[in-house]
Nucleic acid binder design. Structure first.
Length: 204
DNA sequence: CACCAGGCCCTAT
DNA sequence: ATAGGGCATGGT
């Protein structure tokens, strides 16, 4: 099975990624858009996307959809705003830690983009509540690093087509990156989005 | 009413 | 190393 052909077929079937994916796959993104993607990467953990939208709207309506603002507001205020996204207590804590890291340790999103992949990935993973998938979401969709994101839908796809037997995150990530041959962040962004879009479609 | 959603951490084997 | 429980909301 040619993985790139799989991508072409999904692309043919769905075209440009829609909905949330339109923003996540937008190239290039403004600073505000990058920050929104980072915030959404935490809010979307094990959450229905509609619920994420409610939380994002709350932040936006209060002028707080920004990393600096999230660093400065009270955690209790943040909790109430992001409540619809579920697991709101832990997510408020995680968000504040993540935003603080990007703003104060990295010097903001533009400087963060310039940090080497290995270093920034390791640092993101050291934060509480940022696992491999969330870290790679941020690296790929916010910082435009060529890392292939593995999630539940990707695993289902691998199983459905029997692409490979080992299902660990690291193995699957290497499998996709090697199979696609080139480290192309734009391709990785669209492909992962299409895998999720297609996975949801299969589910109905 | 029951079950689910793009995760992650902690604890116990 | 790996399985299972907890975290919580709104949709279907």
């Amino acid at each position: 099975m040619d993985i790139y052909l799989l991508y072409k077929n999904l692309k043919k079937k769905y075209g440009k990624p829609k909905g949330q994916w339109a923003l996540w796959c937008k190239r290039p993104k403004t600073k505000e858009e990058i920050e929104q993607v980072i915030i959404e990467s935490v809010l979307t953990q094990r959450a229905n996307w509609k619920n994420v939208c409610y939380a994002v709207s709350n932040l936006k309506n209060n002028g707080l959809l920004s990393l600096e603002k999230i660093v400065s507001i009270k955690e209790d205020e943040l909790k109430e705003l992001i409540r619809p996204s579920g697991f709101y207590k832990v997510k408020a804590k995680r968000l504040k830690e993540l935003c603080n890291f990007v703003v104060n340790e990295c010097g903001g999103v533009e400087s963060a983009k310039k940090i080497s992949l290995e270093i920034i990935r390791k640092n993101l993973l050291s934060l509480n509540g940022i696992g491999e998938e969330t870290a790679d979401d941020i690296l790929l969709y916010a910082f435009e690093k060529p890392v292939f994101v593995i999630d539940e839908y990707t695993r289902r796809l691998v199983k459905r087509y029997n692409l490979t037997d080992k299902l660990s995150y690291k193995h699957l990530q290497e499998f996709f990156e090697k199979s696609l041959g080139k480290k192309d962040y734009a391709l990785y962004q669209d492909f992962h989005a299409l895998i999720v879009i297609d996975g949801k479609e299969e589910n109905r």
